Amino acid sequence: MTGDAALIDRFLEMMAAEAGAARNTLSAYETDLRLASDASGGRLAQADAAAIGRVSDGWSALAPATVARKAAALRRFFAFLLDEGFRADDPGIALPRPGTTRGLPRTLSTGDVDAMFAAITARVARDPPDRNDLRLSALFELLYGSGLRATELVSLPRGAVASDRPYMILKGKGGRERMVPLSDRARAAVAAWRDHVPADSPWLFPSGKAHLTRVRLYQIVRALAAEAGIPPDRISPHVLRHAFATHLLEGGADLRALQAMLGHADIATTEIYTHVDRARLVRLVNERHPLIDAAPVRP
């Protein structure tokens, strides 16, 4: 059988080409597999269930989420070896399956969002308007109005948003393309900002010789939150993406449509928002149901 290093490389190539795995995912898989190979004396690909058990025993001090990630990487690797004929069995059954509880994503109320947009409106209304306020308006309209990831937003090409087209085609995680809806407000905000972007800039949000960084976007978002009276530690660009998804679902959006808009490869990732919505419904029942104040029925 080919050695671990070559098989890991082939597995990563498959994950990139066929599964469309993102760069960060590939990097994590590579690290986990190479560490497991070292722990098994360079014989991970030939390891039996007992050997795999010894490797996973070394994870005992790690957080459940980390163990789950490492086990998932090894399971996919062994499934690949089985599919490609490098093994006749799959020892992945010996890997642990820690019971990790996925926390609900932090989000914002519609009142929080209204407060931030009110602060933006007050800024843009100043005469003459500051170009940074126009940029702020465009950034927030796209973050909350279209649910973009921070990296997707800051790296948008100058011509990504057309004034006569209510959507844009975006290449997101794993190189997957998706159609992103654009509100009239977002297109108007981008058009007002683009008038201040140099014509030779390849980016919609340029900064120096490149585009706006994710760190700077994070700082901009937190500064506006503070101005709107929202504790800055409650907000980030990704929280605004969560708010986009949560509020759409609360408004009756279809889960499959939401998956497409967010660019999730797996519907299971999108389903976390059903838990957010369910939590809201439970809270509504506990706080607003007409029987709350009624005396309990005694047997």
Rank of each mutant, 00 (worst) to 15 (best):
T2R: 14
M14E: 12
M14K: 02
T25Q: 04
A28C: 08
D38L: 14
G42D: 08
L44M: 08
R54C: 02
V55F: 13
G58W: 03
S60Y: 06
A65G: 02
A68L: 10
A68N: 06
K70C: 13
R76E: 12
F80I: 13
F80D: 13
E84Q: 15
F86A: 14
F86Y: 15
R87E: 05
P91K: 09
G103H: 12
L108Y: 04
L108P: 05
F117K: 11
F117V: 05
A118K: 13
A125W: 00
P128G: 07
R131H: 11
F140P: 05
E141T: 03
Y144D: 02
A150R: 15
S155Y: 01
L156Q: 06
G159C: 04
S163C: 03
R165T: 15
G172C: 11
K173M: 11
G174E: 10
G174D: 09
M179I: 15
M179N: 01
V180H: 09
A186Y: 08
V190P: 06
R194L: 10
D195G: 03
V197C: 10
L204F: 08
P206W: 12
G208E: 12
T213L: 05
R214I: 06
V215S: 12
L217E: 09
V221M: 10
A226Q: 14
A228C: 11
I230N: 08
I230G: 10
D233W: 05
R234F: 04
H238Y: 12
H242G: 08
A243E: 09
L255Y: 02
A260E: 15
T274K: 00
V285L: 12
H289D: 08
I292Y: 00
I292H: 06
D293Q: 14
